[in-house]
Amino acid sequence: MLEIINLKAQIEDKTILNGVNLKVNKGEVHAIMGPNGSGKSTLSSVIAGNEDYEVSSGSITYEGDDLLEMAPEERSHRGVFLSFQYPVEIPGLSVSNFIKTAINEKRKAFGQENISAKELLQLFKEKCELLNIDKEYLSRSLNEGFSGGEKKRNEIFQMAMMEPKLSILDETDSGLDIDALKIVANGVNSLKSSSNSIILITHYQRLLNYIVPDFVHILKDGKIVMSGDKSLAHKLEKEGYSFLN
């Protein structure tokens, strides 16, 4: 599904990713861990197509196509979803209107009709239940005045609504209390299938107790320095990142 080869990226002349290699197959869950400043969020931004980052070399292939050639919205239409570490606020724009537009834009890209009101309402109802969300929140302004936990839950809610093929969850666990974490993890787990893949970017092992990864990679200084199964995460938890030295 996704293949990253020797990816190098920089922001304002500062190299952050320094040769990342990663292959994600259908149905797999990958966790990318690493100390602060190792380049985790940069990796997610580059996959999503944030123009602040300049890719200096390497390639990203998604479903056989060059992902780097695609505009951010095209990547989204193709099923790439990024749960933002810091979701932005858009005053006056309701959650429901935002999601409806996102769904319809994707449909438009594939020459499909807009989603019917009935279908949309049904979908809202279903996913609200899944994530234990009060329906009233759909009419609130997007992320405006949301608590940290609400913002993250809103990201997963959008993920549930948009049914992406490749989801990148960037520090979705940070700032969540344990109850919220469980809800989010449950949501993610129920969205998991053999046809979609998930990349979890996290600093802590805690999330991995609830969403079990098939692979764990450690990113350090812009490179994946170690890969393994979930036991690697436990080792990290016990010994800290210092064992890498």
């Binding site: 944030n50 919205e73 933002f84 858009i90 996102a102 834009e105 994707k106 890209a109």
Partner: peptide, 9 residues
């Protein structure tokens, strides 16, 4: 960018 990422041009 946030909107773009959600597929909105």
């Amino acid at each position: 960018f946030y909107c773009n990422q959600r597929g909105i041009g």
